[in-house]
Amino acid sequence: MRREALPPHICTNINLFAWGEIMNNSKLRRRNKNLRELPLHIMLIPAVVLVGIYSYGSMAGIGIAFQRFVPTNGLFGSEWVGLQNFQTLFTMPTFWPIIRNTVFIALSKMILHVVVPVIFALLLNEVANIGFKRSIQTFVYLPHFLSWIILAGIFKDLLSPSSGAVALLMSPLGIQIPFFLGDKFWFPITMVLTDVWKGFGFGSVIYLAALTSIDPSLYESAMIDGAGRWKQTLHITLPGIQSTIILMTVLGMANILNGGFDQIYNMYSPVVLDTGDILDTFVFRLGIESAQFALSTAAGFFKSIVSLLFIIASYYLADRTAGYRIF
């Protein structure tokens, strides 16, 4: 009886017989379906409108990259110059060093953001005492949730060679620390290490979750076979989280041109521009500080296109290697 009250579109095959007559009437079926789906379309209106304006609307502005843009003339009144802005950009003496800096910093971060959390998760996983484990986690997750504004302020003070806490702790040992934020050699390294400091704890959460899903009986049988702790880690634990490691590595690839704007913009200075300037800070200085709108947009567009290729490649690989899909 109840089955007959079912609407056509969620009918199972059995119901098709009960609703045969109506199902045959495809016009009515389509109208019912449209009616049933209408509220879903209505729910999507606000998001479609806002995303349409702010994400898609802004894409029209990319046109500036192909113009000799004059703000008073606007997007429609400025002269189109083809790829001239890109030519100017690629022949700028600072452009390729900036790409090199960006890739160096981003790649180092990508690698360490996998390696350090994995090692940390493995070590933490060896701890049996839950209370101890929890307190360690509480401390190491915290930096992830704080902004680079706050953290940059803290690091600038902390790493100051004259008055920072690091220098004060090291001086009794006779160690003179370098000027981490004001030295061309140390600056990119400091960026990588402080970024790993901020993120490794939180990054380990996903590996800890993967570790708990390893079947404990595997360890038992390994112990019976006489495998020590190290052998167990090598042959059970690591293969157990292998797919998660591959997935996170592959997804990280999408960040190839993300040097970390928030971090570097708040910690760099003119002294370290040679090694510390990245694409995003370059786009910002060009666009906001020097008002070179066309060049800045061109540089931003270049970044978006390269990133897009890497994102597509990384999602493709994630799907192939781990069966991962974002939707």
Binding site: S55, S58, M59, G61, I62, T297, F301
Partner: peptide, 13 residues
């Protein structure tokens, strides 16, 4: 997957 970048976003705002 794709963002328009700094200046175009600023302009639409």
């Amino acid at each position: 997957l794709f963002s328009a970048g700094l200046i175009p976003t600023y302009m639409i705002v």
